[in-house]
């Protein structure tokens, strides 16, 4: 049983549902049977998901992306563009919106879904101007005391000539430093891929939520296999060693909460995923809003200043 089989079953069910809605009630029995089967196999499948399976799910093309979440969870979204220095990076979306009638700042990586859109968004791999745009919008949020919600979904910051020329390292470093001391409340949701520095540049936060099948790591499994194992075929082993699943990160104390995904894959039901994310996001926001700004910044800094495992005898 693979993810593909589940996907096929899901498509069949959707087709039958359409038929059913059109008035062909004789498919009801078949539909019910399929739905039972889906529930059964996804339950079994979820039990034995390997870390590598989760990486494939996190990269699924139909997985909800930042703009999908913005459409589903927020109202009155206004997108803001440009870093005021060089350009606008479509790989990062930023702006303000209403969440349960309160203003929030929303920033996230956007990968794009069809080929044209993917190329336009550079597959969610940001350039320095993307991170500088994010910094500009975060400073606006700080100025007007608006909580920030970031959505992380990137394979990594873009490795290219232009990116290096314009200071990719500096852009990421300043983003991290800014978020570490920003005087407003910050929540990060890791929705898909959390690739290294490019992800961390939007993920220094007071609460870090992570979808069940998302991954977050210092390097991609492929990169780790190539560098440490010197063998691309060892990618599954590398994934396991790196401890990049939500469960691992929760145990290491890097994230605060795991958001469950429906049918072991957010792409299988966007509607249920949105409901889950909305619920946990609201909960986390209410939690951190209890602290005033001085407290929350102090707590955030303490948290990061204390991360690490070492002997000190």
């Amino acid at each position: 049983m693979t993810i593909k089989d589940i996907q096929e079953l899901k498509t069949k069910i959707d087709q039958l549902k359409i038929l059913y809605k059109q008035g062909k009630t004789d498919v009801e029995k078949e539909l019910r049977a399929f739905q039972r089967e889906l529930k059964q196999i996804s339950k079994e499948f979820c039990k034995n998901l390997s870390p590598w399976d989760r990486v494939s799910i996190a990269r699924h093309n139909e997985r909800p992306q930042t703009l999908d979440y913005i459409k589903a969870l927020f109202k009155d979204f206004v997108e803001l563009h440009g870093d005021r220095c060089y350009g606008d990076d479509p790989a990062i979306i930023s702006g303000f919106a209403k969440f349960y009638n309160k203003s929030v700042c929303v920033i996230g990586h956007q990968k794009g879904r069809d080929t044209k859109d993917k190329i336009y968004r550079n597959f969610g791999m940001a350039h320095p101007e993307g991170y500088r745009k994010a910094q500009r919008i975060m400073k606006l949020a700080e100025k007007f005391q608006i909580p920030i919600i970031t959505f992380v979904d990137t394979a990594g910051a873009y490795p290219g000539i232009g990116a290096e020329e314009r200071g990719q390292a500096q852009a990421i470093a300043t983003s991290i430093e800014l978020m570490g001391s920003l005087k407003t409340h910050i929540i990060t949701v890791i929705i898909g891929e959390g690739g290294s520095g490019g992800a961390l540049a939007l993920a220094v936060a007071d609460r870090i939520l992570m979808l069940e099948n998302a991954w977050y790591s210092v390097i991609s499994p492929e990169g780790c296999a190539a560098i440490l194992y010197k063998d691309q075929s060892k990618v599954q082993e590398a994934t396991k060693s790196l401890k990049i699943t939500a469960q691992d990160l929760y145990e290491l104390g890097v994230i605060d909460c795991i958001i469950p995904e429906p049918y072991c894959g957010a792409h299988l039901s966007h509607r249920l995923t949105f409901l889950n994310v909305k619920f946990f996001l609201r909960k986390a926001l209410n939690e951190i809003l209890q602290y005033n700004i001085e407290e929350i910044v102090r707590k955030r800094q303490e948290r990061y200043l204390n991360i690490g495992f070492y002997e000190d005898a």
């Binding site: 470093a173 991290i176 570490g180 290294s196 520095g197 961390l200 220094v204 977050y216 790591s217 210092v218 060693s241 790196l242 401890k243 990049i244 990160l249 290491l252 890097v254 990061y304 200043l305 991360i307 690490g308 495992f309």
Partner: peptide, 11 residues
């Protein structure tokens, strides 16, 4: 040190 080394960037 996997993701813990990533966190050192923030630290």
């Amino acid at each position: 040190e996997s993701v813990i080394s990533l966190m050192q960037m923030a630290k």
